[in-house]
Design a protein around this nucleic acid. Structure first.
Length: 277
DNA sequence: CGTTGAACCTGTTTGC
DNA sequence: TGCAAACAGGTTCAAC
């Protein structure tokens, strides 16, 4: 599910509803859903939630107690959600973490994740710093033009793989990589350092535009993305190529959108005429 | 560095 | 209807 826009929507909704609340209890249903810091879980009981951030596709809660801050990181993976409540009885099966809240606008926060790709971690400041520097490259929304240009010009890999490489640029996944490349008229398999500066500029502008539009639309609910309050994202309606194999290219060029499966089994959707290699 | 394939999971859709 | 295969927003690791 969640790529940068969905994770950003989750973080914003959480910020509105649970900032300042106290963590009364943390229940963990299965030990293996916690990547790091399981033994420090008890510290978080009684801490106040003083911050909510998105980093790449992850959501990070800052918890403060007696002047010390620690962090709760939720990696959402393919199917992970943070929810204020069960939206259907069937959801109960895959709730792995339950945070009980007090003094805010919500009573609890649930980590739901049927496929269990994605984990949660409980980290102190040093742990978080190590976690962040190892996993996340620059942020697509704030990266400068010069940084982005240099990034492309020093890599020989394929454009789509580069856009999705979290340690280089953190937050873009399969849906948005496809949408961005289509709108920048660049083939997914183009070698990054062979793209002209003017095309890199196009890609840079389109990347920010698409992600920003998607956030404003509440993200893409393709299968089962829901914001914490249960609402769906509307950006799927604006998808131009993702999941559109066999349909005519929206540019009016007359060609049909193709699906190509490269290494690592991810589908690339593109127009063979508008995105030439 | 970069690519590839497999592994980790469950649920839904598609095709015979 | 039944069953198997294909597919799904992601990351990680080993091998080349």
């Amino acid at each position: 599910m969640p790529e940068l826009p969905e994770a950003e929507v989750v973080a914003r909704r959480l910020r509105e509803r649970i900032m300042g609340a106290t963590l009364k209890d943390c229940w963990v249903g299965r030990r293996d859903i916690i990547r790091e810091g399981f033994p420090t879980l008890a510290w978080h009981r009684g801490a106040a939630i003083t911050g909510v951030e998105r980093k790449g596709k992850s959501v990070i809660l800052t918890c403060t107690k007696a002047g010390e801050s620690r962090y709760l990181v939720a990696e959402l993976g393919m199917t992970g959600l943070l929810l204020f409540r069960l939206h259907a009885p069937s959801f109960a099966k895959h709730i792995h973490v339950r945070l009980t809240l007090e003094g805010g606008k919500e009573q609890e926060l649930l980590y739901w994740n049927p496929r269990r790709f994605g984990r949660m971690s409980f980290l102190d400041r040093a742990g978080l710093d190590r976690y962040l520097t190892r996993r996340f490259g620059c942020d697509p929304l704030t990266v400068t033009w010069e940084e982005f240009r240099d990034l492309l010009q020093t890599r020989r890999g394929r454009l789509k793989a580069l856009l999705m490489h979290q340690q280089v640029i953190a937050g873009i996944g399969n849906i948005y990589a496809n949408e961005i490349l289509y709108r920048a008229r660049l083939h997914p398999a183009r070698q990054a350092n062979r793209v002209s500066v003017s095309a890199i500029r196009r890609l840079y502008d389109v990347m920010k535009l698409v992600l920003d539009e998607a956030i404003r639309a509440g993200g893409s609910s393709v299968r089962d993305f829901f914001a914490p309050d249960g609402s769906e994202g509307r950006y799927k309606r604006q998808h131009l190529v993702y999941g559109k194999e066999g349909q005519p290219c929206p540019s009016g060029c007359g060609k049909i959108i193709r699906r190509m499966v490269e290494a690592s089994q991810r589908s690339s959707f593109y127009c063979p005429a508008c995105q030439r290699k």
